[in-house]
Design a protein around this nucleic acid. Structure first.
Lengths: 252, 252
DNA sequence: AAGGTCTATTGGTATGACCATAAGCGCCCA
DNA sequence: TGGGCGCTTATGGTCATACCAATAGACCTT
């Protein structure tokens, strides 16, 4: 039988139209979407767990009774959503992934970037998040956190001395700082808002060379306040620290 | 010529291996991904704008020099990312969509839901966002905003009187409140954190019937404070309002 | 003029084949 | 005996072709 098989195209059935008193809302969705929903549900219900491997595409075809194209579209969607990782080769296949903080953060950043979020808006959002998380940080930062933060401050001083200071070091500080809140939701949100921000901000930082030393000093003061569990003082420092950036963005 | 075409499988070329002094990093990505990148770039650069229609799949195949399957996978990914909307039928095709606030918010909510964000974490994040946005609201809320908020409060009172009060009314209040900040980034973030929260919280609200009147009163007080542009007072009200919820979650 | 019907356009799906990749196994040679 | 080279195999990636389904607009009928 040459290419001419038993396809009936969409999943809409003509069988459901007759006999049932109320006309059931005809299933108008793509078959691949149905598969996506099914797999996603299994993952959410933890019947499929991170690390698990799905059957090979060809076997999934048989099980779902669809063609490989359809299965592949479903897998592609799930992969795009960060639920699966697909590897080629002998022991390859579709593996359930645990959405990592980074991955989720990237996804949010993408969404924000692609929507019409201006630099000013992103800056405000960042200010709210980063200032708001300071009390949590003061409460929860442990010795490791403090040590890491101080290490970053040291490297900042070194970089300033040699003229190597870059915005990356500052970003690293804030990134690590967010970890200190010990709350992954807060961490992801603040991480993801930083992406679009950096993109809009671009190289503005480098056009303000005086920012380096001042910013670095504030970082260190902030660490001290955190070490003292002085939420009030720490919050105030953070507010000023970010407020300066905010004003600069507004003048852009 | 029966199915046996000119396929060379991956995009890796055997042609680039010879002749070039340095071995170019072999292109190891999927062809469909390359197409995705290309289209996404066009959208980001606004060479493709919301509402624009891409050429039909079959034409894209010719232009890219790939098969329809590949083009379709790319389109599916872009659709999943909320960049395209695909319509079937005569004047159908792939249309560039403007990621709406709702859509982006849903995407973020999905990501947060699928990651391991606990109710406690989500509650904290929400508290930070919603308390932090209050000053913005006090500064920017216009007459329409106030009127809408008061309308919601009125309906809450009615609902309380008739016993119809539900968590949805409260959610509507907070949703509208976020709009008053006139910052789409903040709005999206706070919206998206509310999704996972409601899911974990479930029906807890209904098990605390005394919450209704108290919460509704606080809503109204909040509106008054906003009307007076009293950021300090409004912030304090919001902090208490959400703080009670936060404590309840912790006791869960 | 109102309504239904035809047709062209376009996405959705099915088949079958072949290529590329990567892991495992075993053979061959040193 | 040890190490590397090549085969085998499992699996995803891609291609080509064909047909179905949905939709809009033109066209025709009444």
């Amino acid at each position: 039988m040459p290419p001419q098989g038993k396809q009936d195209g969409r999943a809409s059935g003509t069988a459901a139209d007759v006999g049932s008193g109320l006309f059931n809302p005809v299933n108008d969705r793509r078959i691949s979407e149905l598969i996506v929903d099914q797999v996603r549900l299994l993952i959410r219900q933890q019947q499929l767990n991170p690390g698990d491997r799905l059957p090979p595409e060809r076997e999934l075809c048989e099980r779902f009774g669809v063609s490989r194209v359809t299965v592949r579209e479903a897998l592609r969607v799930l992969e795009t959503n960060g639920l699966l990782e697909i590897r080629v080769g002998a022991r390859g296949g579709a593996f359930v992934t645990k959405p990592s903080k980074e991955r989720v953060g990237e996804g949010i950043a993408d969404l924000l970037t692609l929507s019409a979020v201006s630099a000013a808006e992103a800056t405000e959002a960042r200010l709210i998040l980063e200032v708001g998380m300071v009390p949590l940080i003061c409460e929860r930062a442990d010795e490791d956190d403090i040590a890491d933060l101080q290490d970053i401050c040291d490297r900042q001083d070194d970089a300033l001395a040699t003229g190597d200071y870059s915005i990356n070091l500052s970003a690293e500080f804030h990134e690590r700082l967010a970890e200190c809140a010990h709350n992954s939701a807060v961490q992801m949100l603040s991480h993801s808002i930083r992406g679009p921000l950096l993109m809009s901000l671009g190289r503005a930082q480098q056009t303000a060379p005086e920012m380096g030393p001042v910013g670095a000093n504030e970082h260190r003061e902030l660490v001290h306040a955190i070490q003292d569990h002085d939420a009030t003082k720490a919050t105030e420092i953070m507010r000023q620290h970010l407020g300066r950036t905010a004003r600069r963005v507004k003048n852009l």
